[in-house]
Design a protein around this nucleic acid. Structure first.
Lengths: 256, 256
DNA sequence: GCCTGTGAAGCTTTTCACAGCC
DNA sequence: GGCTGTGAAAAGCTTCACAGGC
């Protein structure tokens, strides 16, 4: 990779795979822990174990950043911490605004790991006038009417949406209009944004549903030992057309 | 796919791709919204737009479940809601326990979308004796000493960890010992679990760091218009070995 | 004519396995 | 001898494009 092909400007390492980017924070966390224990170097095997990935993947990932290791030895912990921090853009501080200071917004505002590396809660915003002025995690809540001003005055480019789902798209639009180009969305809604704006979502119920899927599989396999049993509701579909699914037609009465 | 190959038992559709499983909850949410508006059928194009994916992907995803659409027409909303619910295992109710009732745990306990489809908060558990008995979201908090009993009495197979990171692995071990086989981890730690136990993690700071990476890229491109400028700290590495990264060596003093 | 279902092609990500260097 | 860095193979995922059926 970094070994001299000539059809790329090469000044800035274009094209780190997205999957790799998503793992860099994991490596960084593991390395930070080693750094705090004053461990000077670490092998790909050890670091991979600490980060919960396999070592081939880790080495491949690091190869996209450059050749930061030493053969026969491993990686210099401090050096890697710095290189990954820089690659992730954490050598600067990002002011973040949280919009929607309910239970979840307050929880995030209080979350320590937030401030620790690269991020700073610059503003808390809520639509409830009664909340305005009340400090949460030591930061006074401001009213949503002033969203524009708050975002631009603080130079916020990353917004965290923790509003109810109904308000999320509107808040998103206003954030984008005010100059925010990265959004972390905790509301269970699909946000639409213009090109150039990144959205990532964190969705509790999606995660639970994925777990339920696998959980059901496990239960199904256990049951399969006893009998070849249809694990779902009985087929009582009231339709005229024939449907071909793997099993289980729709019951007359939908489950709540 | 479902069109008659003969080397699979076929009773239970093995091998729905993980990427598809992860999108089923999105489709389900979009379909539920249509269902509430009493929309009878929907095309792959419309549903894909509502779920924020493209229609080819959606059709491919559905093809793994079976042939549930009608050519020239689209998909029957109610029917699909049922089929996806069943596939995800949401036709049964999953009792869930939340361990660690701080800000975040309380926020999750209060989260409405939780109970609505397939999940029920069966127990709240915390290690602080002062919290025992206090109701959160109408559910009394129980002490961690009784974790084993609480899990088995309630038949909990899905646990949500919202403890501080230091406690997460220990809580995880106890959950697994008590019979939990799926874990949703909000603590910023890598959990190690035996085979057969699924872990999914939700990690605020990882998401923010991924956003920061892309944000930095955007800023870097803007700056590149002005000058070919090193966006990071100056190279003042105190080492003897030569390192070859794309750019940016380590500064003498690490950034806080 | 319209929209689904799906092979086939193209792309991304992971894993393998070993050359290269300490 | 040990461990990194990386081509090459394998697996997984997305997109294309069109046959098939309403």
């Amino acid at each position: 990779m970094a070994t001299g092909r000539n059809h790329r400007p090469a000044t800035r390492s274009r094209g780190i795979p997205e999957a790799t980017v998503a793992r860099l924070p994991l490596y960084l966390r593991a390395l930070t822990a080693l750094s705090e224990r004053s461990v000077p170097t670490v092998s790909s095997e050890e670091l991979a174990a600490a980060a919960g990935v396999n070592s081939a993947k880790l080495r491949k990932d690091f190869s996209y950043l450059g050749s930061y290791g030493t053969r026969g030895v491993g990686y210099d912990v401090e050096y890697l911490v710095y290189q990954i921090s820089r690659e992730l853009g954490l050598t600067q501080d990002w002011p973040v605004a949280i919009i929607g200071i309910g239970n979840l917004g307050a929880a995030l505002a209080n979350y320590g790991g937030f401030a620790s590396r690269g991020f700073r809660v610059a503003a808390l915003i809520d639509a409830d006038p009664a909340m305005a002025g009340t400090p949460v995690a030591g930061i006074p809540v401001q009213h949503a009417d002033d969203l524009d001003r708050i975002i631009s005055e603080n130079g916020v480019s990353i917004g965290v949406i923790t509003t109810p789902p109904g308000a999320a798209q509107q808040v998103c639009d206003r954030l984008v209009a005010a100059g925010v180009t990265s959004i972390l969305n905790f509301a269970p809604t699909v946000l639409s944004v213009p090109d150039g704006v990144d959205v990532r979502k964190v969705d509790l119920s999606i995660e639970l549903q994925i777990l339920a899927f696998h959980e059901q599989r496990k239960a199904g396999e256990d049951a399969a030992a006893d009998s070849a049993f249809d694990p779902a509701a009985p087929p009582v579909r009231a339709a005229t057309t024939s449907r071909k699914g793997p099993d289980g037609d729709m019951p007359a009465v939908m489950p709540a």
